[in-house]
Design a protein around this nucleic acid. Structure first.
Length: 152
DNA sequence: TCCGGCTCATTTG
DNA sequence: CAAATGAGCCGGA
């Protein structure tokens, strides 16, 4: 069984989903209270408070065990990006021996937004996309980069 | 600037 | 298996 929890981020509510072992298995940049009725574990509340106040830069959390081998390679490469730095889709592609288009596809399927900082991957010219273009997702990507001190 | 071609992992038929 | 799709990129007109 999965337990969705809500957290009020500065740009809006986000959802964290845990399994019955209290392990984080998914983090989405949107959410509604009625869909996430469970209380957020204190450990994560503190981590998120620290991140959004600027005290914490990296969550230092393992990537998701879901996904294909290729997707795991992309996520791992992204998890290695230091806070405050951005890489292009092309940079990631070169690291793992693939191509930009395929990298973009894998980013969109990352279940652990924020924790695996896919927002630090941008296009060579401009922001690139985010969350397959859903709603205000691009605005959130921009917000996160500004929060980490990146100008784009 | 706009447009076509290239690329490749994944999804869909 | 073939075709379509995407959070990209490059070069030509």
């Amino acid at each position: 069984m999965n337990y969705p929890c809500l957290y009020a981020a500065p740009f809006g509510d986000i959802t964290l989903i845990f399994d019955n072992q209290q392990n984080l298995i998914e983090l989405k940049l949107h959410g509604k209270p009625e869909h996430a009725p469970y209380p957020l574990p204190d450990v994560w509340r503190q981590k998120l408070d620290a991140y959004f106040s600027g005290r914490l830069k990296n969550f230092n959390h393992p990537i998701s065990k879901q996904g294909t081998v290729f997707q795991q390679k992309v996520w791992q490469a992204i998890a290695d990006i230091p806070a405050g730095q951005v890489l292009t889709y092309q940079d990631i592609a070169r690291k793992i021996g693939s191509h930009p288009r395929a990298v973009g596809g894998a980013c969109g399927k990352n279940p652990l937004a924020l924790v695996v900082p896919c927002h630090r991957v941008v296009a060579k010219q401009g922001l690139g996309g985010f969350s397959s273009g859903n709603g205000n997702a691009l605005a959130i990507k921009h917000w996160l980069l500004q929060h980490e001190g990146v100008n784009i």
